[in-house]
């Protein structure tokens, strides 16, 4: 891993665009330093899966992510929070290089997976190791079995037989808590499932290839409360298996499922820390404003 190099201080946002609820002078330099220390390598004894270092992403000339530094650690759930349009999705999609599908997107800085630059890995290789669940459930128009087996089939040099796939598919569906519901109907079309089931199917599909990191972009925003609850439980259970980065605009959800929370605002990382610390003792003024209303 990299030796700790001096990190750039978190840049302040344009004061004219900052919320004026609290005097910006209270957003003390101390907060920025504390956060820089928290995201620095070696600040935790858990293994670091991914490291985002001084990452900036722009669509054309319009910046979406600015100078973000963040660790993604094994056994932990990292929750990305922030108001809509602050660059959460962009940051998440850059972790498995899906931002490259947008022609105008340009990134600077570095992202590593187990110490390797992700831009030097084959895209296919990277994406099977860093898997993703989207905001809208997007099961393929195939059977449930084929959906879950998709990633395994695409990764094998030779097409594996159905019987070889069956235990892997079952394991993934069990991990996603869907086996009890669909175990008997694996050949049913996936598009007939309910929204919540579809999203869990997408989670199973993403888990089937045994990724090292699982990215989730507001996985519950299209779902009803009951399904949301099931998926939150699921995330809590999965954290031992895979490092999870979840984007959410729902603070309670971040509080329920997150171990660490990163708060983004206008593309910048404003706050980073453990759940307790960010929600109970936020260091930056803007975090206080944002999370303040939640538990009042």
């Amino acid at each position: 891993m990299n030796s700790p190099t001096p990190l750039p201080p978190i840049k302040r946002i344009d004061p004219s665009r900052a919320p004026k609820v609290v005097d910006p002078r209270h957003d003390t330099l101390g907060a920025a330093d504390a956060i820089a220390a928290a995201v620095a390598p070696g600040s935790s004894n858990r293994v670091e899966r991914m490291r985002i270092d001084d990452l900036s992403i722009a669509y054309g000339t319009k910046p979406a992510v600015r100078n973000v530094t963040l660790p993604v650690r094994e056994g932990e759930v990292l929750a990305l929070i922030g108001p809509s349009g602050c660059g959460k999705t962009t940051l998440l999609r850059s972790l498995n290089r899906l931002t490259e599908l947008t022609d105008t997107a340009v990134a600077t800085g570095s992202i590593t997976l187990n110490g390797d630059d992700i831009h030097a890995l084959e895209a296919t290789d990277l994406r099977r190791r860093v898997s993703m669940v989207f905001q809208q459930p997007n099961p393929f128009p195939m059977s449930i079995f084929d959906n879950v087996a998709y990633a395994i089939r695409e990764q094998a040099a030779r097409r594996p037989s159905k019987s070889a796939l069956a235990p892997l598919v079952r394991e993934a569906l069990e991990d996603a808590g869907l086996w009890d519901e669909v175990g008997d109907n694996l050949d049913h079309p996936a598009l007939r499932l309910s929204g919540g089931q579809q999203q869990r199917l997408c989670i199973a599909r993403a888990l089937a290839s045994k990724p090292e990191v699982l990215l989730m972009d507001e996985p519950c925003s299209a779902l009803d409360p009951k399904s949301t609850e099931i998926i939150e439980e699921l995330i809590t259970r999965l954290r031992e298996k895979v490092a999870i980065v979840i984007v959410t605009h729902n603070l309670q959800q971040a509080h329920r499922v997150g171990d660490n929370v990163a708060f983004m605002y206008l593309g910048e990382l404003v706050e980073y820390g453990t759940v307790e610390q960010v929600f109970n003792a936020p260091r930056a003024e803007r975090t206080q404003n944002y999370v303040g209303g939640v538990f009042g």
Partner: peptide, 23 residues
């Protein structure tokens, strides 16, 4: 400010080669 003196690595497209695909 302090580290922006050296040029940053710009990523538009990472490695995504057809050569690595199955035949």
């Amino acid at each position: 400010m302090s580290t922006s003196t050296q040029p940053k690595v710009v990523h538009r497209r990472g490695k995504d080669t057809v050569k690595s695909w199955p035949l």
